Amino acid sequence: MARHGLSLEALYPVWDCEEDDRLICRAVYEETHDVKTFVFVSPEPRQFNFAPGQFLTFDFPVNGESVNRSYTIASSPTRPHTVAITVKRTSGGVVSNWLHDHLRVGDVVRAVGPMGEFSTWAHPNPKRLFVSGGVGATPLISHVRRDFDVGEDLDTIYLHFARTPRDIMFRHELELMAHRRQNLKVAHVVEGVEGERFWSGYRGRFSPELVANIASDFREREIFCCGPPAFMGAVRYFLEHSGHDMARYHEESFDFGQLSPSEQQAAPPPPDETLETYEITFTKSGRTIPCDENTTILAAARLAGMRLPASCTKGLCGTCKTRKRDGTVDMAHAGGIRQREIDAGMVLLCCSKPRSNVIVER
């Protein structure tokens, strides 16, 4: 579409974090008593080009320090002039509490992305089952919003678990969309009904019986799951033992205190004495650990009992980005760090293997 002789792309080029990684907070909405949505725009008129389910990795100035966190984009790619994340306040959550308490309209943050393959675009299927717990609803609401906006009425079951009715995210919006789409089925499951005595929906926790009741044909569906690690573990265990083709199961998690599924399945071995081994010094913790030339610094730190912020463990999300004070590493990243950051001495610990003694700011 042209306007005054200009195309829409010319008026609003795509936002590129390599050119300008700043985002301005345009609005803040309360979704529930402990969940807020933060809406961002580019400083210059730009469009955001992303697939539903992808994420951004933010650089937040928390308590005078730069802290990286990945958040799924909750908004729809059909509304490209803004991008939104939805964040639940968690007890002891450094970033979530900072966002709730301090981020205001007009504030500027920095971000990298979008990234990720937790999307129906990467795993298409006309029959889908979306399973979420708590704030894990965010990548799935992006899918539902997108489908609704473009008029697609695919066979979709949206199954969400919450503690109480007041904790259900996007409840009324989902009910409206389900009312207007014949093939969108929304099922909310709560543990308790505090605040809503006449709740008529499902009650309980995740169970095979509940899933079979709501989605009896789950084995035929592409399943996307997001939520707390224990919740996703229960879903994964059920599917693995129920005949579901696990190639059609996909999950997303940004839990910074736990090992990722890939790390759990392949824990790093002790240092190999036949390989060259170096010392990795972490300036903030004061720890020094050994790491051989075939092991990533993150894997060696985890083996030594250290818990460092990390998510994808593939050099993609940028969560483990750290400044390297000294030393040489071999870093095979997948886009989670920009060249100007590398030039400034930043590394991703999850994909950096030492080639000398290394000192990092962690």
Rank of each mutant, 00 (worst) to 15 (best):
F282D: 10
T283P: 12
K284W: 03
K284V: 14
K284M: 11
K284Y: 00
K284N: 10
K284S: 08
G286S: 02
R287F: 11
R287Y: 11
T288M: 02
T288F: 00
I289G: 00
I289Y: 01
I289E: 00
P290C: 04
E293W: 06
N294S: 15
N294V: 06
T295M: 14
T296H: 00
I297N: 05
L298D: 05
L298Y: 06
A300F: 07
A300T: 03
A300C: 04
L303A: 09
L303K: 05
A304H: 12
A304G: 02
A304E: 14
A304F: 09
G305A: 13
G305S: 01
M306R: 04
R307E: 15
R307L: 13
P309M: 02
A310M: 08
A310Y: 05
S311F: 06
C312Q: 09
T313Q: 08
K314S: 14
G315A: 13
G315H: 05
G315D: 11
L316Q: 08
G318V: 14
G318N: 04
T319F: 06
T319A: 07
T319D: 00
T319M: 05
R323A: 06
R323F: 13
R325L: 12
R325Y: 14
R325W: 12
D326I: 01
T328P: 00
D330S: 13
M331K: 03
M331C: 08
H333Q: 05
H333S: 13
H333M: 06
A334W: 10
A334N: 15
A334H: 06
G335N: 01
I337C: 09
R338A: 15
R338S: 13
R340G: 10
R340M: 08
R340D: 13
R340N: 15
E341N: 05
E341M: 07
D343H: 10
D343R: 13
